[in-house]
């Protein structure tokens, strides 16, 4: 059951990397970055999953040794990572808007004034 998650997450990461390597449109490159991010997030959430566990919401009084819940730490990590991913997308898109104004193109093969 969990294998599906892992395969899915690595497939997403691989797809994203393919996008970043093979696509020459900057927007597609950024979509690739996003895909890599989502794959990673899926991986982290899957890591913390316990089959049959409940949601990890307790007060101190309710918490006993028998309580069985999914690991809350990866969920917190995923949240942070989602926020970071959103920031990354926003930042790169804003750079792309400015680049488009300056270079007049979105083709990575033409945006190479810094080389050699």
């Amino acid at each position: 059951m969990m294998a599906v998650n892992y395969i899915g997450s690595f497939a997403l990461i691989a797809l994203g990397l393919y996008c970043m390597v093979a696509k020459h449109n900057l927007i597609k490159v950024i979509i690739g970055m996003g895909l890599v991010d989502y794959g990673t997030n899926l991986l982290i959430v899957s890591v913390g999953f316990n089959p049959g566990g409940t949601a990890p919401i307790f007060t101190i009084a309710e918490l006993t040794r028998e309580s069985f819940f999914v690991d809350p730490v990866p969920q917190a990590l995923t949240l942070t990572s989602i926020v970071i991913g959103a920031c990354m997308t926003a930042m790169s898109l804003s750079l792309v808007i400015k680049l488009r104004e300056q270079y007049g193109t979105l083709d990575t093969r033409k945006i190479r004034r810094l080389n050699g």
Binding site: V36, L43, I44, G48, V73, S81, S92, Q102
Partner: peptide
């Protein structure tokens, strides 16, 4: 000239390193 280009390259390829770091952390965890 080139400031945005350098920054974008840094961001895109740097995100590869961040992802690598995060995957490593998830595996360790």
């Amino acid at each position: 000239e080139g400031a945005l280009e350098g920054a974008l390259k840094y961001l895109v390829v740097g995100s590869l390193g961040s992802t690598s770091l995060l995957v490593g952390i998830a595996m360790l965890y």
